[in-house]
Design a protein around this nucleic acid. Structure first.
Lengths: 340, 340
DNA sequence: CTGTTAGCGCCTTCAG
DNA sequence: CTGAAGGCGCTAACAG
């Protein structure tokens, strides 16, 4: 091992500068020398040290990605998208899980600065932190994803949760539902609150009353979804349709409905925020909001690449819209979907 | 920006060596100087460059993780586990998706060597490649995860697929099933083949015939699972139970069963390899093999840490066993689960 | 215990 | 178009 640029230069009978120039391809090198160098690289199986390069040019070929938890299916697509884009542009991805912990997130940011990363994509834990200001001052391109940062103007890519929730609830309304329940995530995360707002907006736009008794809020865990759904369906006058605002809540809702021996959508319709479309695969009768998570990651990564290439542009906010998916047949009046 | 060790040294009135020693904590520094240095670090907000350090010591604080696809739920837990362990030991994780593509995997390995990573965890695409031999020769610790490498003796952490598949099929047999179908992943990946072997072993151990007509093999995609399951259930003499060897295949199988209006487990029992236990959450009547994916990742990462600390030990194979999960009620002697 | 010094491997002016 | 030479920021001998 340890074949370095100097070895290649000596082997090819040129200077290290020439080898470097051939490698970068930025400057002209005579045909002959170029070939000799290329041959030498081949012969010696030379692999330029990215570490040395990073030190020299004061920037690594790594981009940092900070999310709250890779085990959250929502983020896996984002990670994948970021990796795809990064790879295509010659960058690698350093992955960190912040667990919604501000201190951890700060630590990781410090780490990335120490690694001289070319840029950072972060799903911010704290919308008010001044951490991001310091990052910008450090001159590192940063893109926020999925959530807004209030304290600083920063490049951001988010999903239009309000509109998506509104559209899916309107879809239920269009199919004749008048009593629509909601099982949604706690409101402290902006996403939960925004989806609740979308739900309300849909009802109000259609002149339907908002019955707070039909709205159940809880931590996004499947057993919570199960309990809340059972509560809704046990009401004297239960909803004919339920909107679930989160993947895990949907899992629980499905179990509850199954257990009660009810059919979807004949006995009760279900419309869900579903990052993975897994629920949809299993029960096509469910209407889902397919969040453009991959798109979000791609968009964020591409924006970051642009910022790395040309910094000092004014920050940009990209708002993506989600897609509603459902089986035509399963929502019509004569749906044949049966329970076994 | 750009506050370096020299600045700290000057500010504290010491040499860079002293600062370095304080930082590493490896050597003794007088109380007074140590405090002056610490204060200087604080005052100047000094952040040591990991890049320079990596170049100097010829090894970065990064470990590489190569999996086929982070979007595969099986790998997300592994990634998370690796990240947890790495972080605890002061390392970061460089994540790469090989997409089961040998060329891509090789490229990533090259990349990691260029980044001077401290070690690599890889889910090998090709069990016969000599790529890993070259890695070992390069002196970089490597741990294979989830799949074996045949060509080289290498540290490995895998799941006992044969035993797990066998046990879950035996569980079906214990509950009275005699005609058990299998929907499993293609055999080129060691996991698919091993699960098939486990299936056979269970049948043979109980003196049951292996009817190859009841074994369907395909790519691990949900629509394939759907088709294969439909095929099985359309047989003149269909199986009373089905073993699915992969998460996505299970998704498809569930849809097929649902669509045919069949109940689990009354009409047809389902036993599945299920990394996420999602199927289980949705339909508790399914018996699942809960693979210890997080454990696998943790185990692999810890092994790697050990190898980084003390290389030149003879390779080790760690085989983890999976856990069978099912609802007592649905499997008990009086349960509807029993056949006939 | 502390300071001096010589690189780690590469890029990039600056001369030629 | 090419080569020589000086760091990038840090660590690890080696002296003192």
């Amino acid at each position: 091992m340890a074949v370095k640029i100097e070895d290649v230069a000596r082997y090819a009978g040129v200077s290290t500068a020439t080898v470097s120039r051939v490698l970068s391809g930025k400057q002209h090198v005579s045909q002959e020398l170029r070939e000799r160098v290329l041959a030498a690289i081949q012969d010696l199986n030379y692999r330029p040290s990215r570490v040395a390069r990073s030190l020299r040019i004061q920037r690594s070929s790594i981009i940092g990605l900070i999310i709250s938890d890779i085990q959250n299916p929502f983020f896996t697509s984002i990670v994948r998208a970021v990796e795809d884009v990064a790879q295509r542009s010659g960058y690698s991805v350093l992955l960190c899980n912040s667990d919604e912990d501000t201190a951890k997130e700060m630590m990781y940011i410090e780490l990335m600065l120490a690694e001289h990363v070319a840029g950072i994509i972060v799903s911010p834990t704290d919308s008010e932190s001044d951490m991001y200001l310091r990052l910008l001052e450090a001159g590192v391109p940063v893109v926020a994803i999925d959530r807004r940062v209030e304290s600083v103007e920063i490049d951001t890519v988010i999903n239009d949760n309000v509109a998506a929730a509104r559209r899916i609830v309107e879809h239920l309304i269009d199919n004749g539902h008048r009593r629509i329940g909601a099982v949604i995530g706690v409101m402290q995360a902006s996403t939960g609150y925004e989806r609740y707002r979308g739900y309300r907006a849909a009802l109000e736009a259609h002149g339907l009353p908002v019955d707070e008794n039909l709205v159940r809020v809880g931590m996004p865990r499947s057993h919570i979804g199960y309990t809340l759904t059972k509560e809704l369906l046990a009401l004297e006058n239960p909803p004919t349709a339920i909107f679930t605002g989160n993947n895990l809540l949907t899992v629980g809702a499905l179990r509850a409905i199954d257990e009660l021996g009810l059919c979807i959508p004949d006995n009760v319709a279900l419309a869900a925020f579903d990052e993975m479309e897994w629920m949809f695969l299993i029960k096509p009768a469910i209407t889902v909001v397919a969040q453009p998570t991959y798109e979000m990651g791609r968009s964020a990564a591409e924006l970051l690449m642009r910022r790395i290439a040309e910094p000092d542009r004014s920050p940009q906010q990209i708002v993506l819209s989600a897609e509603i998916k459902f089986h035509e047949s399963s929502m019509g009046p004569n749906s044949a979907y049966r329970k076994g």
